Simulated scan of single mutants.
Amino acid sequence: MPKGVVVAPARHGGDQAQAFLRRGRRYIPLGAPDAESFPARLDAALLGPEPRAGSLGHLVWRYQQSPEFKRLAPRTQDDYREQLGRIGRAFGREPLSAFDDKVAAQRIFAWRDRRAASPRRADYRVQVLKSLLGWAAGRGLVERNRAAGIPPLYRSDRRYKIWRPEDVEAFVAVAAPNLALALILAVETGQRQSDLLALRWRDIDGDVIGLRQAKTRQDVAVPITPPLARALEIAPRSSPFVLVRQDGQAWASEGGFRNAWRYYCRKAGITDLTFHDLRGTFVTRRLADGWSLQEVAFCTGHSFRNLACLERYAHRGTIARALARRRLRQSEIALPPPSPMALWPEGP
């Protein structure tokens, strides 16, 4: 279900469950979720009434019905709708022609800068606006994308934020078994939190985990390491999903999982590492083990055309030291032992 949809269970034996779309303090009735008319009513409620033609609000309305928008992953569509709503409230009544003017970039900068205290959120709003105006420019609805040249506010380098073995041990020592399994899965597969929460037992094929990532739609396959195999062997199979709550049920939301994760991080004394840093730890470990960039990309889902982006996940110092030691060991094995004659040259 899209974000904002709530389902009220049936109160009496003959009643059907009813779905509603929450919009602020309003709840828009959608009818029974299993009714044939439900998808159409949901789409109409998500779109809202058609705005005035020629306005930016009308462009937002059209964009959400486009094939490009519908190709986005469901989670991305939810996030985009939220930001498109903010864009509509800020610029929706303005004529679309106003975004052909050079002054439009200044107004977009000012709109972004008002949210500078939360740079990542401000950047995401601009990212969605770039997508919207890029779609409009591609269809000839505006002359150019005035948001395209706006740089991000947020700057972060988390290449050096990796989970050390002692960090992993500290977390596993205090965490509930279901959260400990989540950590081991993440550090041994390099997958995103959302993909791991959606992972099913049927996705495990012998000694390989295969799945299609929700964000990139890439098919990935990751070998099951001995530590992961041991963790999976003792994990309960009370649900089709691998990661479950302590009561054996699937996680109802990513928010519930994140709250539990933060709790055990605090309990373990881990304050400067995130769940996503486990993805970088996986990349760092595999490159340090001598894997090629292509081999890592087959696991992480990165495009072969842009392998350089893996660098933002990799701790170069750790990789360099591991490779240097490996080369040293290989050279020691390859060199023959010195002969006594080489050590003790003949006398006169």
Rank of each mutant, 00 (worst) to 15 (best):
M1I: 08
K3R: 12
V5E: 01
V5G: 03
P9R: 14
A10H: 01
R11A: 13
H12C: 10
G13R: 13
D15I: 08
Q16F: 10
A17K: 09
A19F: 11
F20R: 00
F20Y: 15
R22F: 00
G24A: 02
R25C: 01
Y27R: 00
P29L: 00
P29N: 05
G31F: 10
D34Q: 14
E36T: 11
F38Q: 04
P49I: 01
E50C: 03
P51I: 06
A53K: 15
L56K: 02
H58M: 05
H58K: 10
W61A: 04
S66Y: 08
T76H: 14
E82G: 10
Q83D: 13
G88F: 02
R89P: 05
A90G: 07
S97F: 04
S97H: 10
S97R: 15
D100L: 06
D100P: 06
D101V: 07
K102D: 06
V103I: 14
A104F: 04
A104H: 05
Q106N: 13
R107Q: 08
R107P: 05
R112E: 07
S118W: 02
A122D: 09
D123K: 05
R125D: 15
Q127L: 12
S131M: 09
R139C: 06
G140F: 09
L141S: 09
V142H: 06
E143M: 04
R146W: 09
A147K: 03
G149K: 12
P152C: 15
S156A: 14
Y160G: 10
I162K: 01
W163N: 07
E166F: 01
F171D: 04
V172Y: 00
A173C: 07
P177W: 05
L179D: 03
L183M: 12
L185S: 11
E188R: 03
G190L: 04
Q191F: 10
Q193T: 13
L196G: 13
L199Y: 10
L199T: 08
R202V: 02
D207N: 03
D207K: 03
D207H: 02
R212V: 02
Q213R: 05
Q213P: 05
Q213H: 05
A214P: 00
A214I: 03
T216E: 00
P223Q: 00
I224K: 01
T225Q: 09
T225M: 04
P226M: 02
P227L: 01
P227I: 02
A231K: 00
A231C: 02
L232P: 07
S239V: 03
F241M: 04
G248D: 09
Q249R: 08
A252L: 13
E254C: 10
F257S: 12
R258Y: 04
C265P: 01
C265H: 09
I270L: 15
I270N: 11
I270W: 07
D272H: 08
L273H: 06
T274S: 06
T274F: 02
H276S: 08
D277F: 07
D277G: 04
D277C: 06
L278T: 15
T281V: 14
V283Y: 05
V283H: 04
R285I: 11
R286N: 14
L287V: 10
D289N: 05
C299D: 00
H302M: 03
S303V: 03
R305T: 07
E311Q: 15
Y313T: 11
A314E: 13
H315K: 06
R316N: 08
A322G: 14
A322P: 12
L323R: 15
E332Y: 07
P337C: 07
A342H: 09
P348I: 03
